[in-house]
């Protein structure tokens, strides 16, 4: 990180969250794509999209909520659901310690937030992956919250929306994390049978077990530009086939070309397009 990106001071949890991963912080930020030097304040105001090249930076979940929900309409649910280390998993660190430090830096107990909100006046059951929390990996808490989101949408007959950003299943929860793919999908299957719409928004990145379950089952699937979407990770594929991957492989545009998503939507347009889809489907 360049010196002009460094700015250390006491912050609220929500602000600390903004610093994780490639989320720009400090006074200035350099666009990773076109090299433009951007004032961070300006970048945030432009929804973290480079005004010059339209590169979409990773957006902290708290800003994503503000971007999509009508002002003050998001009422978060299930905030007391917390992870439990049933396996007693230890790799180079204990899973419980990883959880503790992730919760501290992300300001939330696990990698998913959900509740009820309004989008252009329409009531929706909406959820957001918190990529800042262990790469948005799906363990039991994420699976549980997604199942509850779908159940709430079904009960109230309101559209379900999930913004996915996840590396996939959370290894530290072993088979229980794999089974969250089934748990979320059985809940979604009921919703779809009842004809309640599910709009799936794929952000960078949406891979592994999240892609291979509910995320690719949206009645409508939208993706942000250049988002990486796929099942197997690029490194695993390269090691298996022992050749370089084609440029643009597993990017949103590649998925659109292969018929896997309905549309690529720029961030500033996302709320309006979701509102339009809700109108057209309800």
């Amino acid at each position: 990180m360049a010196w002009w990106n460094r700015k250390r001071e006491k912050r609220e949890a929500s602000q600390a969250l903004a610093e994780k991963r490639s989320v720009p912080s400090g006074l200035w930020h350099k666009c990773g794509q076109c090299g433009e030097i951007l004032e961070t304040q300006r970048l945030v105001e432009s929804s973290r999209v480079c005004p010059k090249c339209r590169h979409h930076f990773v957006m902290p979940t708290i800003e994503r909520i503000a971007l999509l929900c009508d002002e003050g309409s998001f009422v978060e649910e299930d905030t007391t659901v917390e992870p439990e280390d049933r396996l007693g998993f230890v790799d180079t660190r204990r899973y419980v310690d990883r959880l503790r430090s992730a919760a501290k830096s992300a300001g939330v107990p696990d990698a998913f937030r959900e509740g009820v909100a309004r989008i252009e006046g329409h009531e929706v059951a909406i959820g957001f992956f918190v990529f800042e929390f262990m790469g948005g990996s799906m363990g039991s808490v994420v699976g549980e919250k997604i199942a509850r989101l779908f159940e709430r949408a079904l009960e109230r007959r309101i559209p379900a929306i999930i913004c996915s950003a996840s590396g996939g299943a959370r290894m530290q929860e072993g088979i229980l994390s794999l089974m969250q793919m089934a748990k979320t999908t059985v809940a979604l299957a009921r919703l779809r049978e009842a004809g309640v719409p599910f709009l799936s928004v794929l952000l960078h990145p949406t891979t592994g077990g999240v892609a291979a379950s509910f995320a690719m089952l949206g009645d409508i699937i939208l993706a942000e530009p250049k988002a990486q979407i796929g099942f197997a990770g690029p490194r695993v594929i390269e090691q298996t086939i022992r050749q370089r991957l084609p440029p643009g492989f597993q990017r949103a545009e590649y998925l659109l070309a292969h018929g896997m998503v309905d549309a690529i939507v720029e961030r500033h347009d996302l709320k309006a397009r979701l509102g339009q889809l809700i109108r057209l489907l309800s």
Binding site: A212, A215, L217, G233
Partner: peptide, 15 residues
């Protein structure tokens, strides 16, 4: 884990 499998929608097929 191959290019062709991804191209033809591995994730969607499993889901």
């Amino acid at each position: 884990p191959g290019i062709d499998a991804e191209e033809r929608g591995q994730a969607e097929a499993i889901a």
